[in-house]
Simulated assay, not measured.
Amino acid sequence: MRDVPVPADPAPAPAPDPGRGVVLRRCALLCGALVLVTSCGRGGGDDGDGGLPGVPTGVTAEAGSATTVHVMWNAVEGVDAYEVYRGGAKVEEVPASDRMVDVTRLRPSTAYAFTVRARDADGRLGPRSREVRASTPAAVADASAPTRPQGVRGRAAGSRAVQLSWSAATDDRGVVSYDIHQGGTKVHSVGGGQTAAVVTGLRPGTDYSFTVRARDAADNVSPASVAVPLTTPGSDDGHATAPTDLRAASHRADGAYYLDLTWVPPRTDGTVTEYQIHLDGRPATSLVYGGDAPRDRAEYSFYAGREAGVTHRVRVRARLADGTWGGFSEERKVTTGAGR
């Protein structure tokens, strides 16, 4: 018979070291804290050089017709554009100079929910606004526009707002909304059951002219009401809204002279998309940008005639989000054929 070796008794386990246990517990707590700090520091994305855009406030939605809803919100500083969402889908995008949009191609007799997000020049989106809801009315076969709103009155409500009121318009199928225009620019909209509105975002010491139009479910729009002129109190010398660093030169091409202008856009509420150039004290030409309006420096060149040695005076102003013209830039002199 073969001898079978008997295994040796296992070595006794070392006695626990209380000090080592304390060190391990401290290490676990520290690692957990590091994980927590790292997670919190990046919870909303890297905020880089100043954080994400803010949340748009004051968001409202009103049906404008059986197929449109008018969405409005307050401005967010330092943004490049706004994105409007219906449910979870992006449906509209507007430049920062706008704070409202008509969402179109909707279904009649349908409830919708909208949110708005601000986007900065780096393409970063801020948080969604609170959700607002609106229901479109039923579609109707209607070829008749509402009557013109009557009895429009207004008063300044501080230096940056006005309050308007009017008598209800009539329509054979009912008024769905009222549009408020400042000059030729639509600046506000309210539901058909309202006969008053407060228009904000205005400038102190500025002359305005407001009209009201009624709209029905078939998108028929009434004639404009009588214009109501109003002046906001306070003073505005125009410096805050004027383009700066205007430079002027001339060049010759194809036997003619052209004036070459560059300037820095005013730092106003939103992106400026329209400018007016004055030549020798009178409006000479207008410049309108699309969605790619410059934010750092704008430039424009226009025809000035075929004669050399003619000295012109030029200045520029911008159309603002409230529909008015801002202040003029400093006037510059430029002589054809003189170069820069």
Rank of each mutant, 00 (worst) to 15 (best):
M1C: 06
M1V: 05
P7K: 09
P10K: 13
P14R: 12
G19E: 00
G19C: 00
R20N: 00
R20Y: 12
V22P: 00
C27G: 02
A28R: 02
L30N: 15
C31Q: 14
L36Q: 07
V37S: 04
S39G: 14
G43W: 08
G44H: 14
G45H: 03
P53H: 07
A61T: 02
G64M: 11
S65V: 09
A66Y: 03
V69Q: 01
A75V: 04
A81G: 00
Y82W: 06
A89S: 04
V91C: 13
V94A: 02
D98L: 05
D98R: 14
R105Q: 04
P108V: 05
S109D: 06
A111S: 06
Y112G: 09
A113Q: 14
A113T: 05
A113W: 03
T115Y: 07
R119W: 06
D122R: 13
R128P: 11
R128C: 04
V132K: 10
R133N: 14
P149R: 09
R153N: 01
S159E: 07
R160L: 08
R160Y: 10
A161Y: 07
Q163G: 05
S165T: 15
A168Y: 11
T170G: 15
R173K: 12
R173N: 08
S177H: 02
Y178A: 11
Q182P: 02
S189R: 12
V190P: 05
G193H: 04
Q194H: 08
A196M: 01
R203I: 10
G205I: 08
T206S: 01
T206M: 02
V212C: 14
V212H: 13
V212L: 07
R215M: 09
P229I: 13
D237C: 10
H239S: 12
A248G: 02
A249E: 11
S250W: 13
A253H: 13
G255A: 03
Y257T: 14
D260N: 09
V264M: 00
G270I: 09
V272H: 01
T273A: 09
Q276C: 10
L279W: 11
L279Y: 07
R282N: 11
A284E: 08
T285A: 12
G290S: 11
G291L: 00
D292Y: 14
D292Q: 14
P294S: 08
P294R: 03
R295E: 12
D296W: 06
Y300P: 00
S301A: 01
R306K: 10
A308G: 06
G309P: 10
G309Q: 15
T311C: 11
H312Q: 06
R313L: 02
R313K: 15
V314W: 13
R317I: 05
R319D: 04
R319M: 08
L320W: 05
A321Y: 03
T335M: 08
T335Y: 13
T336R: 04
